[in-house]
């Protein structure tokens, strides 16, 4: 999967957020706030990635247990998918 092209990553006062573009405003009329891990996943999703690849990258960066990170990544991806932020 990869990220939708219909959202732009923006930063306000050090806070990362995703802003919908064009027609997506109507069905995604909300700002989506990202923490540091969320931002890294979003940046990695510029290319096609699996949940396992994303979790491995995060586990390296945050020195965390890969199995636990994988559960968080899957939950995050589910959330992004529900909001229409992912392309298959």
């Amino acid at each position: 999967m990869r990220r939708s092209q219909d959202f732009r990553l923006q930063r306000v006062g050090g806070q990362d957020l995703l802003v919908p573009l064009g027609p997506r405003v109507k069905d995604a009329n909300a700002l989506i706030v990202l923490n540091a891990a969320g931002r890294q996943v979003w940046e990695l999703l510029a290319e096609d990635r699996t949940a396992e690849e994303l979790a491995a990258a995060l586990a390296r960066r945050f020195e965390a247990d890969p199995a636990r990170v994988l559960a968080d990544v899957r939950s995050f991806l589910d959330d992004l998918g529900r909001k229409g932020l992912l392309e298959p």
Partner: peptide, 27 residues
């Protein structure tokens, strides 16, 4: 990793407070 604020207006005000602290012309 993510969250869509329940109160959109409160989120925007909070973001602008943060922007003001660093003099970012966010609005």
């Amino acid at each position: 990793m993510t969250g869509a604020a329940a109160d959109y207006g409160a989120l925007v005000r909070s973001l602008l407070r943060r922007a003001a602290a660093v003099r970012q012309p966010a609005h």
